Amino acid sequence: MTGALAAALDPGAAFSIVLTLRVMAWTVPLLFVIGVPLGCLLGLGRGRLVALLDMLVSLPLILPPMAVGFGLLLLLGRQGLLGAPLERWVGLELVFSTPGLVLAALTAGIPLMVRPVQAAMRGELTRLMELSAVLGKGWPTTFVRVVLPHCRRGIAAGLFLATGRALGEVGVSLLLGGDIIGRTNTVSLEIYNAVFTGDFARAGVLATLLALVSVALTVLLKRMGRE
């Protein structure tokens, strides 16, 4: 057992843990900043553009992760429709980099962040927003003082679910990040590498680490639902 733990926590595995923490330090705030307004828009908006956006948000849940990753690779690669201008004008290279891993985690988690918020944008909340408008409050004030408090459980649930999904992301990360050892190998990708090379002890310990985080998120989610 001690040997397996030592093998799993060698410098290579330690790098993947630190990298995963860095990726999640960016991903979780982005899930909140992007997911909450997007969920509000999809919950309140109407029309074809909103329906199209709703479908796009659902794609990472419907399509295989490898297909999503391949599409993003074509779009954001050095010769891609968006990747080439970003690299030329901004100097931002998303493929095979930490920003690419953040984008992969965000892509995997955003549907699970949006759906609980979208579901909360109904019923009593709509009436409260109308009342706020009648009282002369602008949208920023209504959002902060009415929408966020009313949707706090949905937001928390979305964050827990999306974080768990982002932590376990493999397919999109593999194509966008490239699984470069010592550069873009997150914990999930390190598990893949360990299994591929037959190092099941390392894979088992790292998988247990992710499982414990997922269980903790699930327990927090259940406790929040009882309150």
Rank of each mutant, 00 (worst) to 15 (best):
V114K: 09
L176S: 00
P116K: 10
K137N: 11
C151G: 07
V147N: 02
V117N: 05
R145D: 02
V102R: 00
V144A: 10
E93K: 14
P11A: 07
T126S: 09
V205Y: 02
E130W: 09
S132W: 15
R78D: 15
F200A: 12
L42A: 05
R145M: 10
L112A: 11
A8W: 00
L128H: 06
G168V: 08
A8R: 04
G71T: 04
A207Y: 03
G47P: 08
H150Q: 11
G168W: 06
M24N: 07
R226P: 01
A120G: 12
V219C: 11
L56Q: 04
V187I: 14
F15M: 02
A133M: 02
L61I: 13
R78Y: 12
P116D: 11
R22F: 02
G69N: 13
L21D: 09
A14V: 08
L31T: 07
A6Q: 11
A14Y: 08
R46S: 13
M113H: 10
L135R: 10
L19C: 03
A211E: 10
V114T: 04
A13K: 04
V102F: 02
A108D: 02
A211Q: 09
W26C: 15
L221E: 00
P99G: 02
G164S: 00
L73W: 05
L42G: 11
L19E: 13
L31Y: 06
L176T: 00
L63M: 00
F32W: 08
E169C: 14
G109E: 10
M121L: 14
L94F: 09
T186F: 15
M55F: 03
R122Q: 12
L209C: 01
L75A: 14
G80A: 13
V219M: 13
V23A: 05
L81G: 00
V114A: 11
V18P: 06
A166S: 12
P85Y: 02
V28L: 13
R202H: 05
E93L: 02
L53Q: 06
T107N: 03
E227R: 06
A8T: 04
V172L: 01
R48W: 07
A67E: 01
L5T: 12
G168P: 06
P116C: 02
G109D: 08
P99L: 06
